[in-house]
Simulated scan of single mutants.
Amino acid sequence: MYQFNATPIVFESLALFDTSKTRQLELINSSLLHDDLPYQALLPMKSLRTLTISRCHNLSSFLRALDPERSNVLICPKLKKLVLCIGGEMGFDVQIMVNMVAARASRGAELKSIRIASQMEFPLRVVLELGKHALRVDYDSEVDSFDNGDDDSDGED
């Protein structure tokens, strides 16, 4: 698994590597300068199965990058597990996440598992809405004790 502090320099450096076979990626402490960097970094990751985003100051940028309605391209087409560890002070528009998950499902790229660890109250209606488009949605209100796990049980090699 690759684990990065998600700075603009890291994202620009990722473009120099062949990331097409990357299966797991964890991004930590993201504070990007503009919204296009997540799109540019995630676009070549054709085999990514698990994406973990922790303590991200611009989570909406990553969720927009994964939304095929925004870019008309299916980013990370094999993505099955999305793990979000959201600190209490890092709010975001949860509707963006619902829209992204629904758009992926409409393109035949349904997420099997969404795991959310959030210190802020996460509306039950959002969890229920996400459950319409993912096989499993887990919500944990304790970010510090959250274990993102690294099981990759989709059966593909």
Results as ranks from 00 to 15, higher is better:
2 Y>R: 00
4 F>S: 01
7 T>P: 05
7 T>W: 06
8 P>I: 13
8 P>S: 03
8 P>F: 11
10 V>C: 00
13 S>H: 09
20 S>K: 07
22 T>I: 15
25 L>K: 01
30 S>N: 10
34 H>Q: 08
35 D>W: 15
35 D>E: 09
35 D>C: 03
36 D>H: 14
36 D>K: 09
37 L>T: 07
44 P>S: 06
45 M>F: 06
46 K>M: 05
46 K>H: 06
49 R>L: 13
51 L>S: 01
54 S>E: 15
57 H>S: 03
59 L>M: 04
70 R>N: 00
73 V>I: 15
75 I>E: 14
80 K>G: 14
84 L>K: 03
84 L>E: 06
87 G>D: 13
87 G>W: 11
88 G>L: 09
89 E>T: 10
90 M>I: 06
90 M>H: 10
91 G>L: 11
96 I>V: 15
101 V>P: 00
101 V>K: 01
106 S>M: 14
107 R>P: 01
107 R>G: 03
109 A>F: 03
117 A>L: 10
120 M>G: 02
121 E>Y: 14
122 F>G: 00
127 V>M: 06
128 L>D: 12
128 L>H: 10
128 L>K: 08
131 G>D: 05
135 L>A: 15
138 D>K: 01
138 D>L: 00
138 D>G: 01
139 Y>C: 01
140 D>H: 06
140 D>A: 05
142 E>A: 14
145 S>W: 11
146 F>W: 07
146 F>M: 03
150 D>G: 04
150 D>V: 09
151 D>P: 00
152 D>Y: 04
153 S>A: 04
155 G>R: 05
156 E>H: 13
157 D>Y: 06
157 D>E: 09
157 D>L: 02
